[in-house]
């Protein structure tokens, strides 16, 4: 006796595999807490364990190409990363789909929802970015750099470091979150140019670079660091042109001497305003009232030439953290 095969088109949707993903019914939703890159985010509780969690609903582009590649990439990356300062993806839960009826229209085909389940965090950094004591800033910066150093050591670029993507729990533990734009990188690879939120975007990306690496994240961290001290954004541009102008105003205009290769970047000619005399670096001037080691570290994070920008690992060994 061989047993019968499944008939054409048959799928076992009524009985999910016991060792497969759990259903969303394992969680009780409490409230909606935000709108993520790809869908809604809910605070929820695991009915069995009582643990709190954040359910991030994945927005499936109905009728197109199914499960989004960006989400797939994010999941691959998150499952590789295991660090106390990186958000943990607990699991992915589903609500089952249903088989299509005979002659039914597309409306009757329900593919089921999919949720990424993250550990719950109280709030993001935006809430405290402009209200943190210097000692607390040092703790946050240390944790941010440790998480980022771990990412870079695993060849992962985050590419969207900003206040909204840095989550805090218990008032003191910071974690890097939202890896929706994150990417594995290689030294000689080509990457998308349009990443990182405008205020935290480094000059090389604004000039059109597609071959970049860890320094792009360090620039974002430098902007966050300065924002902690100034209690306002450092480079709040409204357009890419304005963003670049604000950067050059404080960090000086680049040239082949200070940044070899800059003139060959795709947008160098169109984006650069040629002043009569080159603008000199004056970032230190607006930070003169703050702790010298902190200012020194910010300076090294916000060097225009990415190859001279400090690394996360070196930053953790800077004088600012030693005292």
């Amino acid at each position: 006796m061989d047993g019968e095969e499944a008939p054409l088109g048959a799928l076992n949707l009524a009985e999910y595999a016991p060792a497969g993903a759990r259903t969303v019914d394992c969680y009780r939703r409490i409230r909606k807490i935000g709108e993520g890159t790809y869908g809604e985010v809910f605070e929820a509780v695991d009915i069995i364990t009582g643990e709190r969690a954040a359910l991030k609903k994945i927005k499936l582009d109905d009728g197109k190409e199914g499960f989004p590649r960006q989400i797939l990439r994010e999941i691959k990356l998150l499952k590789k990363l295991d660090h106390e300062n990186i958000i943990r993806l607990k699991e992915i839960v589903v609500s089952p789909g249903s088989a299509h009826g005979t002659g039914g229209s597309d409306d009757h085909i329900y593919r089921g929802d999919i949720y990424m389940v993250f550990e719950y965090m109280d709030h993001d950094l935006k809430k405290v970015l402009h209200h943190s004591a210097p000692s607390q800033v040092k703790v946050y910066m240390g944790q941010l750099l440790k998480g980022l150093q771990y990412c870079h050591a695993n060849n992962v670029l985050h590419r969207d470091i900003k206040g909204a993507n840095l989550l805090i729990t218990g008032g003191k533990l910071l974690k890097l979150a939202d890896f929706g734009l994150a990417r594995l990188f290689t030294r000689d690879g080509t990457l998308t140019n349009h990443v990182i939120t405008l205020w935290y975007r480094p000059p090389e990306l604004l000039l059109g670079a597609t071959s970049y690496a860890e320094p792009v994240d360090i620039w974002s961290v430098g902007c966050i660091f300065a924002e902690f001290l100034l209690k306002k954004p450092l480079f709040p541009g409204r357009t890419e042109q304005e963003q670049l102008s604000k950067i050059f105003e404080l960090c000086g205009s680049p040239n082949e001497e200070s940044w070899p290769g800059v003139s060959k970047l795709p947008l160098y000619k169109t984006m650069t305003i040629r002043p009569a005399t080159p603008t000199k670096r004056s970032l230190r001037d607006i930070l003169q009232n703050f702790d010298c080691p902190a200012v020194e570290l910010i300076e090294r994070m916000l060097i225009l030439n990415p190859s001279q920008r400090i690394s996360a690992q070196d930053a953790l060994g800077a004088a600012y953290f030693i005292n």
Partner: peptide, 24 residues
């Protein structure tokens, strides 16, 4: 074609669930 595509999309969610979204 439309039915086949819809069937594959339903199947995709089932496959994703069954393999527990383990893409490595």
């Amino acid at each position: 074609l439309a039915k086949q595509k819809a069937l594959i999309l339903v199947g995709e969610t089932l496959l994703l669930s069954t393999i527990r979204f383990d893409f490595n």
